[in-house]
Write a protein that binds this DNA or RNA. Structure first.
Lengths: 206, 206
DNA sequence: AATTGTGAACCTCTTCACAGCT
DNA sequence: AGCTGTGAAGAGGTTCACAATT
């Protein structure tokens, strides 16, 4: 496949949500311009993004809401359930376990890992907390495909290394630190302070 | 000032963290190449980013760790404490209140807002929960400058509109929905599902 | 000898503009 | 007439490469 940019994928996610809402509204057809207006971008951008994957619209008419939703879901790989593991059961970890958006998008947290033995072997919301020593064993058992890393910054790299050894290829990192991983391993960062600092900069320089 | 890109600012935040760690290590001098290696980018990128704001290094020697840290802090506006409000005290809101990284970077949560009367008027970690009806009053009292929005998607736009009316100019939005705001109002999104969906896409298309 | 600071070259992403389809 | 799909143009961001400095 031709190389698709990260920003295109992020926008597809947004269109997907837009279409979700429009479907709920009962809107049958939608134009690239409508999608664009809702997301504060240009209609050419919407059409270009879609064009990398095929032709989904009808000239003169626009897109069928339900079909386009389905097709973007397919593109993004959301037509399956993803088995997700959560590493670190502190503040953030706990919030993420209860974050419904993940579940509704097909990301199911099947296992939790902790370093603190006192938290291990109990269950929260039906999900067992295992010690990180059992990383590979439990990953295999639940067929984990994506790891959410919600441990303190200084442990994050070691945690990723560990799970890479177990064969995990995709990580969502909440620790405010840069993580290195071998070619082919995907790391996405959710660095909440960076966004705040960006606000700080732009506020300071208005 | 010349237009500075968002990506430059995000990278500066990263360099700032890198320097934090190096300072703690006792490293006195550092080269753009060192910073680059730690963050998996090129040294030219590091130098170019810095060059927008002045000249901070010494040719042949590199940068003084402590000075550069201080200068980036100044650029990002982190030499002051920011008064931050938190809207929505559910899972995410609760986790963010206890997220130490914010505090150590100078972002202090001074007020919490809720829609649920039963949660109001109590205090958590010394921070009072006010009803969102009192948005402007409480914002003024605490001189709030940045709002963290952690409410369900369907309320997010209304919440932002409300606080824009109160004069708030900067928002960090955790709701998975696109927010519109007038010119000059800054909105940063922390959309955790979008990053997961991006992983889903790249995993599906390996 | 080492490393910065930066114009120029390069590459990537976005927008334009219009032919082509409904 | 209206809206898509897309090649071409434009804008913006990254890397190169080297003169300048320590």
């Amino acid at each position: 496949m031709k190389k698709i940019s990260d920003s295109t994928i992020k926008r597809l996610s947004k269109y997907y949500r837009t279409l979700d809402e429009l479907k709920a509204n009962g809107t049958m057809m939608i134009s690239s311009n409508d999608i664009a207006l809702i997301n504060s971008i240009t209609s050419a951008q919407v059409r270009k993004d879609l064009s990398f994957f095929g032709t989904f619209g009808k000239r003169g008419l626009g897109y069928n809401t339900e079909q386009l939703h389905d097709q973007i879901g397919r593109i993004l790989g959301l037509k399956k359930l993803w088995n997700v593991g959560l590493v670190g059961f502190g503040n953030i970890g706990n919030a993420l376990l209860n974050y419904n958006e993940f579940k509704t998008q097909g990301f199911h947290i099947k296992a939790i890992f902790e370093n603190d033995f006192s938290k291990c072997d109990s269950k929260v919301n039906g999900v067992k907390i295992s010690h990180i020593n059992q990383a590979c064993e439990v990953s295999k058992k639940h067929n984990l495909e994506i790891m959410i890393v919600a441990v303190p910054a200084k442990y994050a790299q070691a945690v990723v290394d560990k799970f890479v050894e177990c064969g995990i290829q995709a990580f969502l990192n909440f620790a405010p630190t840069h993580i290195k991983a071998p070619e082919g391993v995907l790391i996405k960062n959710e660095n909440m302070s960076i966004e705040l600092e960006s606000l700080s900069f732009f506020l300071s320089n208005k």
